[in-house]
């Protein structure tokens, strides 16, 4: 398929229509009520002119008399102001790892990550949220920012489908760039395998801020979770070419799994301590059940 005709790549390659129909009923939910830039469909912390009542408060001198609740004054002969929640739009920032390591695994982690991204992006776009998608490896590679509405769906699909997984991963640089380009407030979702040799802590710290919810979705392949190896092997790292000589034994596998569990729980602890949500996924699992069940349970989606 020639690259000059990218428009032929459809979102349906990532998400089937039945799934999309079920996604239509979902919306992205922020645990923090965040201030959006536009008066959108989102409740904001900022009280303002809105239809949705929030609270009453006693009148003080200088308040706008338009918001005095006269009905209460009629009953209680005291002045109360009506407070309304202002509905604002939500920025959803998806940060997707496309380094070479994501291409590994059977099924490939990248496929899973892209389908997940597409699903989340779809949910965001159909609910008129502001969507930014950043693909990174050793720094940000491509970015689509400020998408809003269904019109952006093909553009998003094309970007996801035409990006291959290669190159080193420099998570910190990617996060630095993403954090600086981020405007407004909303949700940041990082999709990666989080197997970064230089660590993830400093990078994630950059993404955690008062105005953003952080969701960390770790994608691991079944081969990484349950390695089925045997014999004397020389394992070569696909990104930096580093080699590890192992002779597979039950003891070694035991230590590997123990290490993997420890690594994931470390990441989980790191996230939990900073108010972020950690989700671990297996690339062999179905994106549908993840999105329709699990992400609703962690209240990313509604």
């Amino acid at each position: 398929m020639p690259a000059t005709k990218p428009t032929t790549r459809k979102l349906t390659e990532l998400l089937d229509s039945k799934f999309m129909a079920r996604l239509d009923s979902l919306d992205v939910l922020s645990r923090k009520i965040l201030q959006g830039k536009l008066q959108g469909e989102r409740r904001s912390k900022r009280r303002g002119q809105s239809v949705e009542f929030a609270d009453h408060r006693p009148y003080v001198v200088g308040d706008d008399l338009r918001f005095v609740d006269w009905n209460i004054y009629g009953r209680l002969e005291q002045l109360f102001l009506k407070l309304f929640l202002e509905e604002q739009d939500l920025t959803v920032h998806l940060l997707v790892d496309t380094s070479a390591s994501m291409g590994m695994g059977e099924p490939a982690k990248a496929t899973f990550a892209k389908r997940l991204t597409a699903a989340l992006g779809y949910v965001s776009l159909v609910n008129n949220n502001r969507l930014s998608i950043s693909l990174f490896a050793d720094g940000l590679r491509t970015q689509l920012t400020h998408m809003r509405g269904r019109n952006y769906l093909p553009q998003m699909a094309e970007m996801l489908l035409t990006t291959d997984c290669d190159g080193f991963s420099d998570f910190e640089k990617a996060c630095r760039d993403a954090a600086t380009s981020r405007i407004g407030s909303g949700i940041t979702i990082v999709v990666s395998d989080f197997l970064f040799k230089q660590g993830y802590e400093a990078a994630l710290r950059r993404l955690i801020g008062a105005r953003y919810d952080l969701y960390v979705i770790q994608v691991l392949s079944p081969q990484e979770i349950e390695p089925e190896l045997g014999g004397d092997l020389k394992l070569r790292d696909i990104e930096d070419g580093d080699a590890a000589e192992i002779t597979v034994s039950s003891a070694l596998l035991k230590y590997y799994k123990r290490n993997l569990a420890a690594y994931c729980s470390e990441l989980n602890d790191f996230c939990t301590r900073r108010g972020a949500v950690y989700v671990r996924t297996n690339s062999a699992d179905s994106v549908e059940s993840l999105v329709l069940n699990y992400l609703r349970r962690v209240r990313l989606l509604r």
């Binding site: 197997l195 970064f196 394992l235 790292d237």
Partner: peptide, 26 residues
Amino acid sequence: KLKRHEMLVSSTLLWKRAVQDLQVNA
């Protein structure tokens, strides 16, 4: 002097840690 099969993995991070653990704990 064993001849080892070469195999690509997404990262040697955890394997190296496992081998280290193995050696330390053996």
